[in-house]
Simulated scan of single mutants.
Amino acid sequence: MKPSPRQNLTHQLTYDLGIAIVEGTYPVGGGLPSEADLCVQYNVSRSSTREAVKMLSAKGLISSRPKQGIRVLPENSWNMFDTDVLTWILSSKPSLALLKEFTQVRLAIEPQAAALAAMNATYEQLEDIEKALSRMVEADQGLDDPLDADIAFHTSILVASGNRFFVQLTEFIGTALRVSIRYTNKIKGVPGADVKKHADILNTIKSRNPDRARDAVTAILDEALELIDSQL
């Protein structure tokens, strides 16, 4: 079912205001125009404006209270695990410090996910990781998108871990990988990831060796951190 026109207007206003906040058009601690003024400024209904304000409040970007108006909250209140918030930040100001923090999150999660995949992955899930690796090979030949293939590989391991919390992180990891991988590949001067190292990860998972799987993922993430650190 297609979204209603009002839903589309709400989402567009949420996006426009979210980008404006992240880019500093509305600075932290400052106020946004009133809902009535936003209606006029963005040519949307009061109900759409109210819904957009609620969505931004839920994402931790603003607070809206009677007599205080709409205030922009500090960055440590923003929900970094919200894919909209993360996308806005990464599209407007993907700082090296932020990419480093994200890679540190990956380092805390993905090696363990690979170890769990080595123990828990079903035959179908192993096939999904293998298909993603095949896409990476094809991407090297110009037959697939290298970024999409790389993201599919890493997120399929999260799914194969069998850990429901890790599975919930696939969209978050995929969103940030879109910027992070592009950046580290640019530093290395290559269009795509090292297929051999990713094949080694798959083989350790298929051999049901959790320690080797953990070490194989740790190695490529340590390399990514070193690359980022070299540019800071």
Rank of each mutant, 00 (worst) to 15 (best):
Ser207Gly: 09
Thr10Gln: 10
Thr155Ser: 05
Ala117Met: 03
Glu75Tyr: 11
Ala176Asn: 06
Gly24Cys: 06
Lys188Cys: 14
Leu32Cys: 04
Pro27His: 00
Lys131Arg: 15
Val28Lys: 05
Phe166His: 03
Arg212Gln: 08
Asn120Pro: 02
Asn163Ser: 07
Thr122Arg: 11
Ala139Thr: 02
Met136Tyr: 00
Arg182Ile: 07
Pro74Cys: 08
Arg65Pro: 04
Ala216Glu: 02
Trp88Pro: 00
Ser47Phe: 03
Lys206Gln: 07
Leu99Trp: 01
Asp215His: 09
Val22Thr: 04
Met136Asn: 05
Ser161Leu: 03
Ser207Lys: 10
Gly18Ala: 08
Ser47Gly: 09
Leu143Gln: 15
Asp16Leu: 12
Ile109His: 02
Glu130Asn: 13
Thr170Cys: 09
Asn76Thr: 11
Gln41His: 11
Asp140Ile: 04
Thr175Gln: 09
Gln112Glu: 10
Val85Cys: 11
Gly142Cys: 04
Val159Arg: 05
Ala132Asn: 00
Leu86Ser: 07
Gly31Met: 05
Gly30Pro: 06
Leu9Thr: 08
Asp150Arg: 04
Asn43Leu: 11
Leu86Gln: 02
Ser77Asn: 13
Asp200Glu: 15
Val85Met: 06
Arg106Lys: 12
Leu32Thr: 02
Asn203Ala: 15
Arg71Thr: 11
Tyr42Trp: 15
Asp222Asn: 15
Ser134His: 11
Lys131Cys: 08
Glu223Cys: 04
Met119Lys: 15
Glu75Asn: 09
Phe172Met: 02
Ser64Lys: 06
Ala108Thr: 05
Ala149Gly: 05
Pro210Cys: 04
Asp150Asn: 12
Thr87Tyr: 03
Leu221Glu: 07
Phe81Ile: 06
Lys93Met: 13
Val53Ser: 07
Val167Ser: 10
Met136Ala: 10
Leu90Thr: 02
Glu138Gln: 14
Ile220Cys: 01
Ala108Gln: 15
Thr175Arg: 00
Ala108Ser: 14
Arg214Gln: 12
Asp211Val: 10
Asn203Asp: 12
Ile70Gly: 00
Lys93Glu: 10
Tyr123Arg: 14
Lys59Ala: 12
Ile129Arg: 01
Ser161Asn: 06
Val159Met: 15
Asn209Lys: 06
Ile151Gln: 04
Leu73Phe: 09
Ser45Tyr: 00
Thr170Ile: 11
Asn185Gln: 12
Asn79Gln: 14
Tyr123Asn: 12
Ile187Lys: 08
Leu99Ala: 02
Ser156Pro: 01
Trp88Ile: 04
Ala152Ile: 08
Leu143Met: 13
Thr184Ser: 09
Cys39Val: 02
Leu99Ser: 02
Ser64Gly: 01
Val167Glu: 11
Ser95Ala: 11
Val179Ala: 13
Phe165Lys: 10
Asn163Tyr: 05
Ser134Gln: 14
Gly174Asn: 10
Ala199Arg: 11
Pro210Ser: 11
